[in-house]
Design a binder for these strands. Sequence first.
DNA 1: CTGAAAGCGCTAACAT
DNA 2: ATGTTAGCGCTTTCAG
Lengths: 335, 335
Amino acid sequence: MHSTIRDVASAAGVSKATVSRVLNGHATVDAILTGRVHAAAQQLGYRPNGLARSLRMRATTVIEMVIADVTNPFFTAMVRGVEDAAQAAGYSVVLANADEDLAKEARYIEVAAAERMAGVIMCPASETDTRVELLLDRGIPVIAVDRRLRTAAVDSVTVNNRAASRDAVAHLLAQGCRRIGLIGGLAGTTTSNDRHAGYRDALRQGAVPMDIDLVVDGGFRIDGGYEATLGLMRRREPPDGLFIANNLMTLGAVGALADAELRFPQDVAVVGFDDVPWADPLRGRMSVVSQPAYDMGRRAAGLLLRRIQGEDFPPQRLVLPATLRIGASSVRRPG
Amino acid sequence: MHSTIRDVASAAGVSKATVSRVLNGHATVDAILTGRVHAAAQQLGYRPNGLARSLRMRATTVIEMVIADVTNPFFTAMVRGVEDAAQAAGYSVVLANADEDLAKEARYIEVAAAERMAGVIMCPASETDTRVELLLDRGIPVIAVDRRLRTAAVDSVTVNNRAASRDAVAHLLAQGCRRIGLIGGLAGTTTSNDRHAGYRDALRQGAVPMDIDLVVDGGFRIDGGYEATLGLMRRREPPDGLFIANNLMTLGAVGALADAELRFPQDVAVVGFDDVPWADPLRGRMSVVSQPAYDMGRRAAGLLLRRIQGEDFPPQRLVLPATLRIGASSVRRPG
DNA sequence: CTGAAAGCGCTAACAT
DNA sequence: ATGTTAGCGCTTTCAG
């Protein structure tokens, strides 16, 4: 079926070692033999068996990226960054969709461990329960991106979630909002916690008492955002401002407000975290905290590649800036 | 670092063969030895090396899914279908993002070939130039999904693109449209060709002359749809109807119409192919041809699994139904 | 029922 | 500069 290095060797009249040397350029080989090897390989359509090679070299050239939700463009933008950096270094990256589900995530971690992948970049589904030790125990380097891990001393690439969230909520206060609702993310993730903390910071600084009834979780999903918003806006005393902890939930919120026949910013001022995907229908309208997704991916890959190459350095915690970008959805008074 | 089968064997006081037999349940092994093996494996945290196992067994348990564009929810919905079917059969699926780029696609095909993946499901970037032979030559089964391949006798799972497109355009004609623009996809893909053909079919059936100036390509991308729409609507004689060959381009078109201060269906009636992602902001408004994305993935995986298991049958061409779902965006006259 | 040995395809000492 | 050999970790005959 498929030819092996052995077939190439005998076709070229040399030893397997010579074929290997020619194809990997590790040592200098006589020009004429080199030619014969290339010709034979070409003619036989030879492709090295990566499995055998990896087994022997105790190293793969594939990176696994475990993302929390393939349908979220924020993650797919990160993927692009990872791919570009990895491919420039000769690695390919395969994606695994954990779907915010610890069991699925664990399965993909097992795959990476079993296939002895070169390294793993992941957005952990949980700060504490993600089974990253299965990788670390085997010496497979791991980088956490977007969300940190509490369990282990792994490098992370995140944004300043807390400060950016504080700014966002402070902006709502400056617009005159006094009852600001929080649509939170997935409990157990650092992004969710940090954004929540930023919300509290802003209220404290603004000397606005926190009303626990205005804090609802949406699980980082469209439906969650939809339900949470509807729930909040149907209260006897609905909020006059809304801070929403991710892009998907913001979309859900927009849908919910439309269904409830409420307008923003008139009925409720809205700020979301992360750019809203497919923003065209809402173009320029939404106020959001914008994140450098592509760059986060690139930096994470850079860190991972250094670890893969065996470089040793203390665990890094890269924090990139996320910035509030104000659109119409939150502006209630001029200036 | 990580323990091998050898370590487990000596810890349990048995041979490697016995460990293998216990762990794979292939043969009956004495209960007491079985217990010792499990205990040793557990205690050492033993995980089989998938590379070595695959090398030996000449078979992996990983499926690669090459998708044309990770940012398109249509593809990610298919991914879910593939994952569910594959995992039920004990396979895991890794994703590769070809980004509608033949070079990237080829690289991921090489990865699948090198890693001897069990099989590949792909949405080929080109009907003719996608290098599937690299897989087929190595006996790795391939299923084309969403788009067919012309090159080889590979199974495919698609929808009735042509007929559904004809219906969509016929619907626009029934609304009184006489100058219907087509925003086409990516040249070289069967979906693009078939949807184009359906458009022509409808015009012919409706005895409406085709105006080549109304046919523009948008490359299946948001920007492409945006530019194409803007270009069409700025003509001296702009179209009164628009058929748009995929969801992303429909979003771009919606944005373009907003920017041009045109309303639909009043100024131009619009039908798109495939559900519009994040439809909430447009909820219920868009007329679209709806595709069973999840099911396409599931069926593709089913076919692939049969091929992987060595079953031999003539190349299948599964065609699932796509159906026109009429919303407000295209309705101009009652009834 | 269990162990010894061979071998999957490759690379890297070690010889020559 | 090239060939020979050993071995990566696993499964699977083949003996016993």
